[in-house]
Simulated scan of single mutants.
Amino acid sequence: MKLLAISDTHLETDTIPQYLAGIIEDYDLVVHAGDFSSMKFYKALESTGKLRAVHGNTDEKELQELLPEKLIFEVEGIKIGVIHEGALSIVDTTPMRYLALEMGVSVLIFGHLHRPIIEKRDVLLICPGSPTKPRMSDPCAVELIIDNGTVKANIIEISGQSCNYIDYSRKLDKDKNS
């Protein structure tokens, strides 16, 4: 089974942008780790029939009441947990590991950082970054392929606007090499 993990979309639209729609169609499930921002965008994703989601800290009140803070579900024998906030640092994922163990999951998908992380310990920790408002990264998501009790996770790039710092850094590098 193929899952697409996304987070921190922060969209106010009632349609899925083409750059996401074209990707979503290739996956069996879409896991959103919060911060849709609007009920309109949540409903657009929900209409795919593939969505599993939690609310984020910037989601409208109606979404925060509709969606759980934490979610646990199973795919082919693999327990997956989803939460938005919890990570306070991109360099120390220890609290997220403990949260995964507390939730009893093998994979924990979380958001809030807007920057991708895939870290394998005794649990698999995944922050998919943001396909629309990345920080210190390009727009991205994470694909999970679950097959025969194993999970492979890969960061996938999504077309869109990189964070300003990344664009500036690339410009400096290009100027230096010119």
Rank of each mutant, 00 (worst) to 15 (best):
G111H: 03
G81S: 09
L88M: 12
F36C: 04
L45Q: 15
G111V: 05
R52P: 05
H55N: 08
S47T: 13
G77Q: 05
L101Y: 04
G49P: 07
H112G: 03
S38I: 08
K70G: 04
E102S: 13
P95A: 09
Q64W: 14
L45P: 08
L113Q: 12
V82A: 06
G86Q: 11
E102Y: 09
V105H: 02
K50V: 06
R121D: 01
E102K: 14
G49C: 11
S38W: 01
Y98T: 15
L101S: 10
R52L: 04
L88V: 09
F36Q: 07
G86M: 07
E69G: 11
A53E: 04
S106Y: 00
P95E: 11
G34L: 01
G104Q: 02
K40N: 07
D59M: 14
E76K: 15
E65P: 06
K43E: 15
S38D: 10
L108A: 04
G56T: 14
E85M: 14
E62Y: 06
A100M: 11
G111C: 02
S89T: 10
I80E: 03
V54G: 11
I109F: 00
I90L: 10
H112W: 00
I117E: 00
I117D: 00
I83H: 09
I78N: 03
K50T: 08
L45W: 06
E74F: 01
E76Q: 13
I80Q: 07
E119S: 02
R115L: 01
G86E: 08
V107Y: 01
G81Y: 09
G111I: 05
E46L: 08
M96G: 06
A100Y: 10
L88F: 09
K50I: 09
K40C: 00
L51Y: 02
H32S: 08
V105F: 00
H84W: 01
I78E: 06
V75S: 03
G104M: 01
P68A: 14
